[in-house]
């Protein structure tokens, strides 16, 4: 390759690189700031759901209109998301990485403290506490039922829809 030709190739490569870098650098990113969220075909809650995203997912902003943002997921899917379900900074949520490292260094055995995470029943630590503190069977049962209490996400969504809340605002 002659020097002028080499220079031309390098310049083209540099131009392409700058273009790609510029596109990346200027692309605005938002993060899902909700337990779950739906991507819709349009900017109203009446538009069809075209995808689902979850807490912490990164979304590239394509456009904005009022309370809605048009976004593209990392897999390339496009849709509109209710702006109040996004954040401009990456949400931290419950990041247990450091906690688990500390737990490991303290040599604690977490599995010994929790009988079965998520299952019905007080964990071993709380049961031991209840015994020592003399908590009544009635109150243990109340906390047991409280721990196990769950409402499916769809019912929460329906509750929002009925109340005209969130993306269902009238």
């Amino acid at each position: 390759m002659t020097p002028p030709r080499l220079l031309r190739v390098l310049l083209i490569a540099l131009w392409i690189g700058l273009f790609v870098w510029g596109t990346e650098a200027w692309a605005e990113t938002v993060y899902v700031q909700a337990k779950t969220a739906q991507l819709r075909a349009g900017k109203t809650s009446l538009d069809a759901v075209v995808g689902n995203v979850k807490f912490g997912d990164a979304l590239e902003v394509v456009g904005r209109d009022g309370s809605w943002i048009e976004v593209k997921t990392t897999s390339g899917a496009k849709g509109w998301i209710f702006a109040n379900k996004t954040s401009s900074s990456k949400p931290s949520g419950t990041n247990d990485t450091l906690a688990k490292l500390g737990q490991s260094m303290r040599g604690s055995d977490a599995s010994a403290t929790t009988a079965s995470a998520g299952a019905r029943g007080l964990d071993k630590a709380s049961e031991g506490y209840a015994n020592r503190a003399g908590v009544s069977a009635r109150d243990r049962d109340a906390v047991d039922r409280m721990t196990a209490y769950q409402i499916p996400d769809q019912e929460v969504e329906e509750f929002l829809r009925e109340g005209g809340l969130g993306e269902y605002a009238k």
Binding site: T94, D96, Q103, T113, A117
Partner: peptide, 10 residues
């Protein structure tokens, strides 16, 4: 280790 945050399980 005690300086690290308390994890969700704890």
């Amino acid at each position: 280790g005690s300086l690290f945050p308390i994890g969700y399980e704890e």
